[in-house]
């Protein structure tokens, strides 16, 4: 860790257009909250020639309902803002639950949810709930805008689908059908640490049967992943102990974790099974409540 940053040129444009015209991969980086960027610049992991702040671009710090379409938030919406938003509490409790597991107040006051996604860490606590809710990522480039599902946004550890002259401006989270319930589980060495394993699940029930299920896992592959096999297995089944146990065992099989300082691959896989089981039970109870 270096005590000081190496010099760079700094820009504070006031429009998104100017931002995307300046941004250029690792050479010209965007600054939102800075929690990750500044840290990596100190570690000399990223050495941008220019840093472009988003902070002076007006109108990016919203968290708001999107009519019947659900919820949306902008590039400068901080984790604290989202965690405390009433709209999120009502329509997107799963996201709120996940953010509450990031315990550092300072990280949440400074850090933005979109910044967290753009870092593309497989251990993100923000990504799994958004996978489980089918969130879409709005990307703006120099000439065009596009919107992609979050699964396509995460490409590899530390790598997103963003082109060199693109930024993420908004996340759209669709509203959930009635009878839905979600749950987020995180296992970490201490509450402050990043996840060894995390899991976000969302189930939609009708008459005790599972109409839809989404299971997202973090920290067990180069990107967050969905346990598609387990999801398919659950559809149409009665939401009982057997279904939940089979689905969680299948989810563990979908995980391809590594061993590192935080955990072994074996332990992570086994914990996927446990976390998904607990999360499905909790989500089912919430869906029926």
């Amino acid at each position: 860790m270096h005590r000081v940053l190496l010099p760079f040129e700094f820009f504070e444009p006031t429009t998104i257009k100017e931002v995307v015209e300046l941004v250029d991969g690792d050479k010209v980086r965007v600054l939102a909250g800075g929690v990750d960027l500044v840290l990596k610049m100190r570690r000399r992991e990223i050495l941008p020639e220019k840093v472009v702040s988003l902070q002076k671009v007006p109108g990016l710090d919203y968290v708001e309902g999107n009519g019947s379409a659900g919820l949306k938030f902008g590039a400068l919406a901080t984790l604290t803002q989202i965690e405390q938003s009433e709209v999120v509490m009502e329509n997107c409790a799963l996201l709120r639950e996940a953010i509450s597991k990031i315990v550092s107040v300072q990280t949440k006051t400074m850090g933005t949810a979109i910044g967290n996604l753009c870092v593309a860490t497989p251990a993100s606590d923000v990504a799994p709930p958004l996978y489980a809710m089918g969130a879409r990522i709005k990307i703006v480039g120099v000439d065009a805008e596009r919107e992609i599902p979050i699964e396509e946004f995460f490409v590899d550890a530390g790598k997103t689908a963003l082109g060199p002259h693109e930024i993420v401006t908004e996340i759209v989270v669709p509203s959930l059908p009635s009878g839905s319930g979600g749950a987020f589980m995180k296992l970490s060495k201490t509450a402050e640490d990043i996840a060894k394993v995390n899991a976000a699940v969302m189930v939609t029930l009708a008459d005790g049967r599972c109409e839809d299920a989404r299971i997202a896992l973090g920290s067990v592959a180069p990107t967050p992943i969905r346990a598609i096999g387990a999801e398919t297995m659950m559809k149409g089944q009665k939401m009982d102990k057997k279904t939940i146990e089979e689905a969680s065992a299948s989810a563990a099989e979908a995980a391809t974790p590594i061993s590192d300082i935080r955990s072994t691959a074996e332990y992570r896989k086994e914990m996927v099974r446990i976390l998904v089981k607990d999360a499905l039970q909790e989500a089912a109870a919430r869906a029926q409540a």
Binding site: F10, G34, V35, V38, L39, V105, T107, M110
Partner: peptide
Amino acid sequence: PSFSCLTL
């Protein structure tokens, strides 16, 4: 509350 060590 903000980290002054990570704030430009």
